[in-house]
Simulated scan of single mutants.
Amino acid sequence: MTLRSHFHRRLGLVALVALASAVLAIPAQARPERLRWTHPTPGEVQNFEAFARAPDGSSEQFFSLSVPTPNLGVYEATIEVGDGDKLISLRAIRLDNVASAWTPPQTRVDDAVGPVIPVGGGTPLSPTPGAAQRFDFAGDAVGASVTGWVDTQPNYSLLTDDSLFGVTELDSNRVLFTASTGDNIHSHATGLDNIWSDYELRGRMAINHADASIGVTAYSLYRNSDSYYRLGRSAGGEFVLEGRPALSCSGTSTGITPTPGAWYRFEFHVQDQGASNHITVKIWDQTTTEPPSLQVDCVDSSTQRPRDGTIGVWSAGAGEKYWDDLEVILGDGGATTTPPDPPVLLFIVPAEP
């Protein structure tokens, strides 16, 4: 069974809401972990189960959680897992004993490697008029794979594994996320209607751990070829522009090191200039002002450069990674700034005569 099956769409479990005790600053040890989750059709479920394992697949543990009494639709249970990093998933067992798919695993990170900082929903970005494509994941089921996207296995593999990325909900806002610690995994939009040239990729992304690696791809040829441009950051580093094959231009760092728990907006533009591709980048903390100048300005004249391609996301290492409001703007998208966020209307009172 896959996350895309009819039953898994219907009975598929909502991803874990919180692994609350993962942020305690105490030495690594076996200890209780509190899980919170929701489910779209609770009346069909006779039992929930949890599965914990180390990132290398060892130290597997299974737990029967029964059906706890929900509080405002949220279930809660406590399990005790072993020492070190753990990947934890849930599934539902229907009344006829049919099991749902496991949720995409979330990471319980050993405190010895640093704290987990929760990521909130932030402020969703308003749609850009005339955008060729927009992925805000609002229409995708929580706990399921993204419709029309394909995940690929670690280490730049082109082989499919649709268990690596899924949709979760942060403060009632649905986003794309992964809790996988696999190195160099990807998810990409598929189909001929998702291949473009001369475009800008806009959106936002966030991490919950300082050792998380996260990024977005443009002009990607996945799953046919390991070729794309990427705006991303490796564990502990700044957001940089990279390519596969490697870029030869200098000045590819944005100077921006992400803070766990914060959302970062970006504008990632690639323009075909005939003999080369012109690539520019801006990225900034969503709560701050958009930078007035480009942070990266690169020309790729390689004969191996991609001429067009789809968009996607890239991940590696510890923690959870999140993406939202991905848009494709055709043409010279970099010539205009991102629309401002709308105002927040607080209240309306009668005006004085």
Results as ranks from 00 to 15, higher is better:
residue 6 H to L: 12
residue 260 P to L: 05
residue 63 F to M: 05
residue 176 L to V: 01
residue 116 V to Q: 14
residue 137 F to E: 07
residue 296 V to P: 00
residue 326 L to G: 05
residue 235 A to L: 07
residue 108 R to W: 14
residue 103 T to K: 10
residue 98 V to P: 01
residue 142 V to K: 15
residue 299 V to R: 04
residue 255 G to C: 04
residue 173 N to W: 06
residue 19 L to K: 13
residue 13 L to F: 03
residue 237 G to V: 14
residue 251 G to R: 04
residue 59 S to R: 15
residue 285 D to V: 02
residue 58 S to R: 15
residue 227 S to C: 02
residue 2 T to C: 13
residue 203 G to S: 12
residue 108 R to D: 06
residue 195 I to Q: 04
residue 138 A to S: 15
residue 350 P to Q: 07
residue 330 L to P: 01
residue 289 T to P: 03
residue 67 V to E: 01
residue 43 G to C: 04
residue 220 S to V: 11
residue 156 Y to R: 15
residue 316 A to V: 10
residue 76 E to T: 02
residue 53 R to T: 09
residue 30 A to N: 07
residue 241 L to Q: 05
residue 226 D to R: 11
residue 323 W to T: 02
residue 194 N to K: 13
residue 220 S to A: 13
residue 156 Y to N: 15
residue 306 P to E: 01
residue 250 S to A: 11
residue 86 K to G: 04
residue 79 I to F: 06
residue 232 G to A: 05
residue 149 W to N: 03
residue 167 V to G: 15
residue 265 R to K: 13
residue 272 D to T: 06
residue 223 R to L: 09
residue 98 V to F: 09
residue 10 R to V: 13
residue 160 T to Q: 02
residue 296 V to C: 00
residue 305 R to A: 01
residue 32 P to R: 11
residue 105 P to Q: 13
residue 238 E to R: 14
residue 128 T to G: 03
residue 277 N to D: 04
residue 205 M to A: 06
residue 69 T to Y: 15
residue 204 R to E: 05
residue 287 T to A: 15
residue 46 Q to W: 02
residue 210 A to L: 07
residue 107 T to E: 07
residue 269 H to P: 09
residue 308 D to F: 14
residue 128 T to F: 11
residue 221 L to P: 00
residue 3 L to Q: 13
residue 326 L to A: 12
